[in-house]
Write a protein that binds this DNA or RNA. Structure first.
Lengths: 196, 196
DNA sequence: GGATTATTTTAATCTAGATTAAAATTATTT
DNA sequence: AAATAATTTTAATCTAGATTAAAATAATCC
C-alpha cells in the first residue's frame, strides 16, 4: 500500500517522460519534436503518452512548470549559509547548472512560451517573471552589501540567464564537458560582477 | 536597365521576407511559425512566398545563411583599427548587437539547425563552427596580447554567445531597450574578461 | 490462480498547414 | 496601348503528425 510520500510507478514514469520530452524540446523545439521522438526515448509508442498527459501542449506546459520548480529549488538552496549576494549568486548558478547537466536534468528551456494555451502561457510567464525578479533581487542585495559591483541588474540578469539557457544548444551530454560546466561556468559568469 | 550592382525589386522583397521570417522564427521557432505568420507581416498570402523560395526549409536555411553573413560582417568590421584583442571583442559585440536590434535586423538565431535538410544542415553547422572558432581566436589573441585575462576560451565563448543569442527571447523591439542594449551590454559581457 | 486495475499498443480518424497549379493581377517594355 | 514578363492570389491537394477508441498485455490484489 502506497503512502502519500512514496512515488508511484505512474509518477515515476511521468517524470521520466518529462525528462525525455525536455531533452527533445531543447534539441528540436516544441513543434519540431513529434510525440514519437519523445516516446521513442522511453521505448514506448506515441499513443502511450496520452495515458499521462491530455495532449502535447500539456506536455510542454508540464516541462516548463518542472523547469520553474527546479529553478526555484536551485535558488532556495542557494540562500542557505551564504554570506553575501555574490556568494548566493554563485551558489545559485552552480545549482542551476548542475540541474541542467546532471542526473535530474535536463531542464526544459522556456523558449516557446508563445506556443502554450493562453491560460498556461500566463501561468508560465508569471513563474518565469518571478524567477527573473528573484535573480535580479539577488544582484541588488549583492550590490547593497558590497559584494557585487554596481550594474544594470535587468540587463545583467538577462545576460547571465541567456548564457545558462543557451547551454542545451551546444551541450549534448558529454560527461567531461558537464564537469567543466560545473567547475568553470559559474565563475566565468560571476567574474565581471565581483566588486574589487 | 538594371546593373549588376543595384538591387532588384525581387531581391529587395526577398530580403524583406527573410527579415520577417527571422522575426517569426526567433519568436516561435521554425515549426511553430506558419508561412501565414511570415506572409502576414509582409501583407502577402502564404502561397506568394513560394515565388521567392522553394519551400519552408529553404526559408530557414536562407535566414541562417544571412545570419552567418551578418555575423561575419560584424566580426570583420571589428578588426579595423582595433588596438588589441579586448577592443576587437568589444567592437564585435557592439556590431553584432546593433545588427540584432537595429535596422538591418533581426538576425535569425540558429536554434533549430536540426530541422534543416542534411546538406543545408552541414553547411550551416560549418558556418556556425567557423564563427565560434573566429570568436575564440579573438579571445586567444587578447590573452596573448595581455588585454584579456586568461580563461577557458571555449566555455567563455559559448557563455557570451549564449547571452547574445538569447536576446530575441526577451527583446521585442522596444526602442529604449534597444538603446540600452547597444550602450551597456557589450561592456557587461566584456567586463569579466578585462585583464587588470 | 482468477479477478481487477493499470499500462500499452493497434489501427483508425482528424487537422493544420505545407505545397502546387492555374488564373488573376500588376509592372515593364517596346 | 498592346504585348510580354513579373508577382500575387485563389482554390485545390497532400501529408505528417496529433488525437482517439477499442483491444491487448502486464501488473497487482484477493
Amino acid at each position: 500500500m502506497a503512502t502519500e510520500l512514496e512515488a508511484t510507478r505512474f509518477q515515476l514514469q511521468k517524470d521520466r517522460m518529462l525528462r525525455a520530452a525536455a531533452r527533445c524540446f531543447n534539441q528540436k523545439g516544441f513543434s519540431g519534436t513529434s510525440l514519437k521522438d519523445v516516446s521513442a526515448l522511453l521505448g514506448l509508442t506515441d499513443a502511450a503518452l496520452y495515458y499521462y498527459v491530455r495532449n502535447k501542449e500539456e506536455l510542454v506546459y508540464l516541462c516548463y512548470v518542472r523547469a520553474a520548480d527546479l529553478g526555484r529549488e536551485a535558488m532556495m538552496e542557494a540562500q542557505n549559509g551564504a554570506r553575501n549576494g555574490h556568494e548566493i549568486m554563485l551558489r545559485y548558478l552552480r545549482n542551476h547548472i548542475e540541474m541542467m547537466v546532471g542526473e535530474r536534468g535536463p531542464i526544459a528551456i522556456m523558449s516557446e512560451v508563445p506556443s502554450l494555451d493562453p491560460a498556461h502561457r500566463e501561468e508560465v510567464l508569471e513563474l518565469s517573471r518571478r524567477h527573473s525578479i528573484a535573480f535580479e533581487e539577488i544582484l541588488r542585495a549583492g550590490i547593497r552589501d558590497g559584494s557585487i559591483s554596481d550594474c544594470n541588474v535587468r540587463m545583467t540578469g538577462n545576460a547571465i540567464m541567456g548564457s545558462i539557457n543557451w547551454i542545451p544548444k551546444w551541450f549534448h551530454g558529454d560527461p567531461e564537458m558537464a564537469q567543466q560546466l560545473r567547475d568553470e561556468l559559474p565563475e566565468i559568469l560571476a567574474l565581471g560582477l565581483k566588486a574589487d
